[in-house]
């Protein structure tokens, strides 16, 4: 089991589509994509439509993206979240954290 990341960029927006599993064995593969984000990016979409499994380390990498959106001042969106992944995101409070950072500008 592995993770494939498909990147699509258009002007000042970027989409990262995750295919496979997002866990401790694969999350490091996201790091280079997040590291290359510069201050010109206005919107980052994370597409989870082909994610089969996500664990706490995977959640951690999404938290890193949330923190980065605050640091680099871009909009972060989640796309294609299936029911199982949505339940995990809701349980740990990921949507609330994203909302606090994106809408309220809360310093986290």
């Amino acid at each position: 089991m592995s993770l494939v990341i498909k990147k699509e960029t258009k002007n000042t927006t970027m989409t990262l589509k995750f295919i496979g599993i997002l866990d401790i064995s694969t999350t490091n593969e996201i790091v280079p994509y997040l590291n290359e984000i510069d201050n010109n990016l206005k919107e980052l979409s994370l597409d989870f439509s082909e994610i089969e499994f996500i664990d706490s380390t995977g959640i951690g990498s999404i938290m890193n993206a949330i923190h980065l959106s605050q640091e680099k001042d871009f909009t972060l969106k989640f796309e294609g979240v299936n029911e199982l992944t949505r339940q995990v995101f809701e349980m740990v409070g990921l949507y609330d954290i994203l909302e606090a950072v994106q809408q309220e500008g809360l310093d986290v």
């Binding site: 740990v92 409070g93 954290i97 809360l106 986290v108």
Partner: peptide
Amino acid sequence: IKGIMVGGLP
């Protein structure tokens, strides 16, 4: 009962 993970928000 909902609550955000510890370390998520202050």
